[in-house]
C-alpha cells in the first residue's frame, strides 16, 4: 500500500497497462517529452518509446484517428489537454466513435480512451475551466467516467483502457495533487457503471461527480454538525449510470441533492434529477435539489469565479432546502 497523488496513480495505470498490452499507445499534446502539462504521462516516453507521441495541435483529427486506430487493432489513449477543447473532438465522438459498433452491426469494437481534465477554481478563465460532462454523457455509445480518489483513478483508467467501447475519462485539474492510498499489489480492474458510497447517511442523498464529491463530503460534515446525516454518493461513472445505487439511496433517505460542476441548464444535474423522478418518484419526500455552475461564462477574477462554480456551502444549503 502506498500513498500517491492522483496524477501518479494515473501514471501507474498507464504504465501497467502499456506493459501488459503492446497495442496500447498514448498520444496528445505535450505528453511525451514534457510528460504532460499535468505530468500524468511523465516518464512514459522513456519506457515505451514510439508508443508515446507528442502531437501537433489538431484535436479534431487526433480524436478521429484514435477512433479508427481503435477499430483496427490498437488501443489508443488520447490526452486532450483541457475539457474545454472537447468541442474540437466532438465530431469524432458524436459522428464516428459512438456509432460504429452499432451501425456496423457489431463488426468492430472501439477500445479508445480520451483522457481530459476540466473544472475551475484556479483562475484559468472562460476557455480553460469548464466542465462539459453533460456534452459527452449525452452521446449514446460513449462511456464517461470521472474518478475522484487516486485508487479509483488507477482502477478506472485500467478499466477504460480494457473496455471494448470508447470511454471519456474526465479528470479535474484540482484533483491531480490529491493524495490517497493505492495498493500497487492489487491488480484489480475497476468496473465502469458502479458508484461508490463515499459517506453513509440516513437523511439526504447527495449525488456528486468528480471534485464535487469532495465538496459534498465537506457539506456532509457541516450538516452532521446540525444533526443531519447526509449520504454522499460518488457516481464515478456518468454513463452508464449506477441506477441501482441511486434508487437504493433515495429509497433510504427520501431526499436528494444532485451536484455537478457543469452548467445547470440542460446540464448533468438535470439528467440526475430526471433519473430520480423517473425511477424513484414515489420515494421522494421533497423535490430534488440541484447544485451546478451558474449558467454563464466562467470569469477569471477569484471573487467572480467563486460565484459561478458551486461548492460545499451551496451543497449544504441545497440539502437544507430538501429537508425543509
Amino acid at each position: 500500500m502506498a500513498t500517491m497523488r492522483y496524477a501518479e496513480a494515473l501514471n501507474l495505470a498507464l504504465r501497467e497497462e502499456m506493459a501488459r498490452d503492446d497495442t496500447i499507445f498514448v498520444f496528445g499534446e505535450d505528453i511525451a517529452t514534457y510528460g504532460g502539462v499535468f505530468k500524468v504521462t511523465q516518464g512514459l516516453a522513456e519506457q515505451f518509446g514510439d508508443r508515446v507521441r507528442d502531437t501537433p495541435i489538431s484535436e479534431q483529427t487526433l480524436t478521429a484517428m484514435a477512433v479508427t486506430a481503435a477499430m483496427t487493432g490498437s488501443r489508443p489513449v488520447l490526452e486532450i489537454m483541457y475539457a474545454d477543447f472537447l468541442p474540437l473532438s466532438l465530431d469524432a465522438l458524436v459522428n464516428q466513435a459512438s456509432i460504429y459498433h452499432y451501425i456496423w452491426n457489431e463488426q468492430v469494437t472501439m477500445p479508445f480512451v480520451l483522457r481530459t481534465q476540466g473544472g475551475g477554481g484556479v483562475g484559468t478563465g472562460a476557455q480553460h475551466a469548464k466542465s462539459l460532462d453533460a456534452m459527452v454523457a449525452h452521446i449514446p455509445g460513449l462511456k464517461v467516467v470521472a474518478p475522484v480518489t487516486p485508487a479509483d483513478a488507477r482502477f478506472l483508467l485500467k478499466a477504460a483502457i480494457r473496455d471494448p467501447h470508447p470511454v471519456i475519462f474526465l479528470e479535474h485539474k484540482l484533483l491531480y495533487n490529491l493524495r490517497g492510498e493505492v495498493d500497487e499489489a492489487d491488480d484489480a480492474v475497476g468496473e465502469i457503471g458502479r458508484a461508490r458510497v463515499a459517506r453513509e447517511g440516513r437523511d439526504v442523498t447527495i449525488l456528486a461527480t468528480s471534485r464535487m464529491v469532495l465538496e459534498a463530503e465537506k457539506a456532509a460534515e457541516e450538516l452532521a454538525g446540525e444533526g443531519v446525516s447526509a449520504e454522499v454518493i460518488d457516481l464515478r461513472s456518468l454513463r452508464p449510470l449506477d441506477l441501482d445505487a441511486i434508487t437504493a439511496s433515495v429509497a433510504k433517505t427520501n431526499h436528494a441533492v444532485v451536484v455537478n460542476e457543469g452548467w445547470r441548464f440542460c446540464g448533468y444535474t438535470a439528467e440526475l434529477a430526471a433519473t430520480i423522478m423517473d425511477h424513484a418518484f414515489d420515494d421522494l419526500d421533497a423535490p430534488v435539489e440541484r447544485v451546478a455552475a451558474r449558467d454563464m461564462p466562467i470569469p477569471y477574477a477569484e471573487p467572480l469565479e467563486r460565484e459561478v462554480i458551486p461548492g460545499a456551502a451551496d451543497i449544504a444549503a441545497a440539502a437544507r432546502r430538501a429537508l425543509a
Binding site: N254, F281, D282, D283, L284, D285, A286, R321, A324
Partner: peptide, 28 residues
C-alpha cells in the same frame, strides 16, 4: 410529496386531513 402520497395511500389516509409542514405547506 410523492412519498407522502404513497404513505397516505398505503395507510388509506385522506391527505386532506393532513397539515403540511414543508415549504409552502407541502405535506411531507
Amino acid at each position: 410529496s410523492p412519498l407522502a402520497r404513497r404513505r397516505a395511500r398505503a395507510a388509506g389516509l385522506d391527505l386532506r386531513q393532513v397539515t403540511g409542514s414543508g415549504p409552502g405547506g407541502r405535506i411531507k
